[in-house]
Simulated assay, not measured.
Amino acid sequence: MANSTMVTEFLLMGFAEMLELRVLYALLFLLMYLATLLGNLIIFTATTLDQSLHTPMYFFLRNLSILDMCYISVTVPKACVNSLTDNRAISAAGCAAQIFLLFWLAVTELLFLTIMACDRYVAICRPLHYPVIMNQRICIQMTLVSLLSGLIYAGVHTGNTFRLSFCMSNVVRQFFCDIPSLLRISCSDTFSNELLIIISAMGIGGSCFIFITMSYSRIFSTVLKFQSRERGKAFSTCVPHILVVSIFLSFGSYVYVRPSTSSDTILDMIFSVFYSIVPPLLNPIIYSLRNKQVKDAVRKIVSRKFYSGKS
């Protein structure tokens, strides 16, 4: 057991061994990363500079864009560098930091998506009370509570994971550090860790899913009473939101909630892409390409820059 506490670095898995395939995967990840940064930066800029978008919905969308840029930056740049250089090592401190940041941002993102469902419910089902319920003070308070909750959640799980001893191996069967992969290589009793993950997933993930489902059920029952044009507008806002939440929760639950003894490395890595990379990539596509107000704001900003440049 003396050697079990001497692990100072871990080795991450890659998607392929051949150099050509490693370069291909790195370029694919890099393109997805740059597209995510660009899309979220456009949304952040548009919702910041256009005064007509200074509403609660776009306040949370602006915060979600910042969160998505940070969230994808925790895993993808390191994965690209590792794939190109074939240097898969990550220090124990770096691994702990990656897990902490990933959990913090993931939980905060889930809470933001839940708040945005609540915002849509109030806007569609109780429009007369919307300015009172979703005022600026409430929006800021909900944002701070979400960030603090994610911080506590990440701290508890990261601390609980790195109190374990690692003596079986230092190979993390994932392209980034995550808790299920570390539990599989621990020589300590991981029952309490797995139990905590399940309780947390059911408590936070389950509660958010139920709240979102109830919000959209009431939204859809209200929307069915609208005229066809207004109905289509409401559905176009809500359905993509449900899609992102479903992808985020379903793939994340599969990787984290199932027993650590059952393992399919390639499948785990593919599923991890769907909860760590796809949601931040989808959010700007959904909210910019499908949202007329955001597109109009982007056009105004671009035309303003163009005319100022010509003058």
Rank of each mutant, 00 (worst) to 15 (best):
M1Y: 14
M1V: 11
N3R: 12
T5G: 12
F10K: 12
L12N: 04
M13W: 13
G14R: 15
F15L: 12
F15T: 02
F15S: 03
E17P: 01
M18Q: 15
L19I: 11
E20W: 09
V23C: 12
V23I: 15
L24G: 13
Y25M: 08
A26M: 05
L27I: 08
L30F: 15
N40I: 04
F44P: 02
T45Q: 11
T45N: 11
A46C: 06
T48A: 09
T48Q: 10
L49H: 06
Q51K: 15
S52A: 07
S52Q: 10
L53A: 11
L53G: 06
I66V: 04
I66E: 03
I66G: 11
I66F: 12
L67H: 08
D68P: 01
V74Y: 09
V76G: 05
K78I: 07
C80T: 13
N82D: 15
T85Q: 11
D86L: 03
R88M: 13
A89G: 03
A92V: 12
A93W: 06
A93N: 07
A96T: 04
I99H: 10
F100A: 03
F100G: 04
W104Q: 12
A106T: 02
T108I: 08
L110T: 08
L113H: 07
L113I: 06
I115L: 02
C118E: 05
R120T: 08
Y121D: 02
V122E: 07
A123D: 05
I124D: 01
C125Y: 09
C125Q: 08
H129G: 00
H129I: 02
I133F: 10
R137P: 00
I140C: 00
I140N: 01
M142F: 09
T143R: 13
T143E: 07
L144C: 12
L144E: 06
L147R: 06
S149D: 00
A154P: 03
G155A: 13
H157I: 05
N160W: 12
F166G: 11
V171W: 07
Q174C: 10
F175V: 14
S181V: 04
L182N: 04
L182F: 13
R184P: 13
L195W: 10
I197T: 14
I198H: 10
S200L: 00
M202F: 09
G203P: 09
I204Q: 11
G206K: 01
G206Y: 02
S207W: 01
I212G: 01
I212N: 01
M214V: 09
S217R: 03
V223K: 02
K233W: 01
A234D: 03
F235S: 05
C238P: 05
P240R: 02
H241M: 10
I242V: 14
I242S: 10
L243Y: 05
L243F: 07
F248V: 00
F251E: 01
Y254V: 11
R258K: 15
R258P: 13
P259V: 13
S262H: 14
S262V: 14
S263L: 11
L267K: 13
M269Q: 14
F271I: 03
F271Q: 08
P279R: 10
P280F: 03
L281S: 02
N283T: 05
N283S: 04
Y287A: 04
L289P: 08
R290D: 02
N291E: 12
Q293G: 10
Q293I: 01
D296A: 03
A297E: 08
V298H: 07
R299E: 07
K300A: 13
I301C: 09
I301Q: 12
V302A: 08
K305S: 11
G309D: 07
